[in-house]
């Protein structure tokens, strides 16, 4: 997106590969943490009514289900949208404007 930043860094080839690797690893970690945060936010709402003195098995099972169903849901919506994009290309056009 930002062409000025890459061209000012004396060309892409000059980037230290070690640095590049480090950044990739850190970005991966960051993404993972973001995902954990997002899941906590979503599933806390769904599974925690009144926090008791310990995490009971019902809430624990709910958390497991919540994360798994979140993944299922996202997969489901992805497939659904892929279908829609084929049948209603107008929609994706109207969003890109």
């Amino acid at each position: 997106m930002d062409s000025s930043s890459s061209s000012s860094a004396a060309g892409l080839g000059a980037v230290d590969p070690q640095l590049q690797h480090f950044i990739e690893v850190e970005t991966q970690k960051q993404r993972f943490q973001q995902l954990v945060h997002q899941m906590t936010e979503l599933c806390w709402e769904k599974c925690m009514d009144k926090p008791g003195p310990k995490l009971d098995s019902r809430a624990e099972a709910c958390f497991v289900n919540c994360v798994e169903r979140f993944i299922d849901t996202s997969q489901f919506i992805l497939n659904r949208l892929e279908q829609t994009q084929k049948s209603k290309p107008v929609f994706s056009e109207s969003l890109s404007d």
Binding site: K46, C62, E68, R69, F70, T73, L78, L81
Partner: peptide, 20 residues
């Protein structure tokens, strides 16, 4: 996909069961 997740997760998933 993200946008739809935000909208439809709240509307459709009440208590997550062991399958969709």
């Amino acid at each position: 996909v993200h946008h739809f997740m935000e909208l439809c997760w709240d509307k459709c998933v009440e208590t997550p069961g062991n399958r969709l």
